[in-house]
């Protein structure tokens, strides 16, 4: 189950997540969710609170495991891995950008970006060179020596994007990355994310903001753990929405 037939960096197949299974408080956080994200693709997942969009991100990043279905990260199925191996894969393959509290306050921008590479065991000089290159790719090469508190919110998010994609990392998972920013700064962050994806990264963006979701190639909409619609072209053979689901409301409504 670990072979990779396409270049997808992330492939979720019928992934489901049930909490408290078999008890009266059983909750289906996500049901039969399928999604493939290839290099050069930015996919947005939208939905109200409780729709399952955070679950998608947690499963995609290996922070949680599905109770049914499969998640394949960079060609490796997460299902059979020990917690330790899963953590190692996560660190090697995925970068995260959150709404805030992304950066270590005591480290400069370049040191923040170096951090994952140093954890990878890369020599400091190499890590520094890679970090500077990553900062250059998000157009803030000149801000490397600043501490987070000396950077604007938008600049901090660019550092976070640089850190997510430093070295060989090619999949960035972003959770409301523009949430705390004004509209122009938010747009600038989306532009940088879009540019990094166009340059060969893959991105999965979770947001409730339609304006920012519109930067994605595809927008998947969730409600009550179900996919209720997908907007944008289907690039891959494996559909994001099971037959008969796209654009229609299915189940989950009383």
């Amino acid at each position: 189950m670990t072979e990779q037939t396409t270049g997808d960096l992330l492939r979720m197949t019928d992934a489901g997540r049930v909490h408290h299974a078999g008890t009266p408080t059983e909750v289906h956080a996500l049901r039969s969710f399928s999604l493939a994200v290839a290099p050069g693709e930015l996919v947005a997942v939208m939905g109200p609170s409780g729709s399952g969009k955070s679950t998608v991100l947690h499963l995609a990043g290996g922070l949680d495991v599905p109770t049914s279905g499969e998640v394949v990260l960079d060609g490796v199925s997460l299902g059979g891995l020990s917690v330790r191996k899963r953590a190692a894969l996560r660190r090697r393959a995925v970068g995260y950008v959150f709404q805030d509290l992304n950066l270590v306050p005591a480290l400069t921008a370049v040191e923040n970006v170096m951090l994952p590479r140093e954890l990878d065991g890369v020599p400091t000089a190499t890590a520094r060179a890679e970090a500077l290159a990553a900062l250059d790719e998000v157009d803030i090469a000149d801000l490397g020596d600043r501490f987070p508190e000396e950077l604007s919110g938008g600049q901090q998010q660019r550092v976070a994007i640089a850190r997510a994609l430093v070295g060989p990392r090619r999949l960035v998972l972003a959770d409301e990355p523009t949430g705390a920013l004004d509209s122009l700064a938010g747009e600038a962050v989306m532009k940088v994310l879009r540019a990094r994806v166009d340059a060969g990264a893959a991105g999965l963006l979770v947001t409730h903001d339609a304006q920012h979701a519109a930067w994605a190639d595809r927008v998947v909409r969730l409600r009550d753990g179900f996919v209720v619609g997908t907007t944008g072209e289907l690039v891959h053979g494996v559909g994001e929405a099971p037959a008969g689901v796209t654009g229609r409301v299915v189940g989950g409504h009383r």
């Binding site: 339609a210 304006q211 519109a214 994605a216 927008v219 909409r221 619609g229 944008g232 229609r248 409301v249």
Partner: peptide, 21 residues
């Protein structure tokens, strides 16, 4: 089905938003 109507409208708006973007 009101929810289906809402979803249809939302899909079209997202499509337009993608085009504007």
């Amino acid at each position: 089905d009101v929810l289906a109507v809402l979803e249809t409208e939302r899909e079209e708006i997202l499509r337009a938003l993608q085009a504007y973007t």
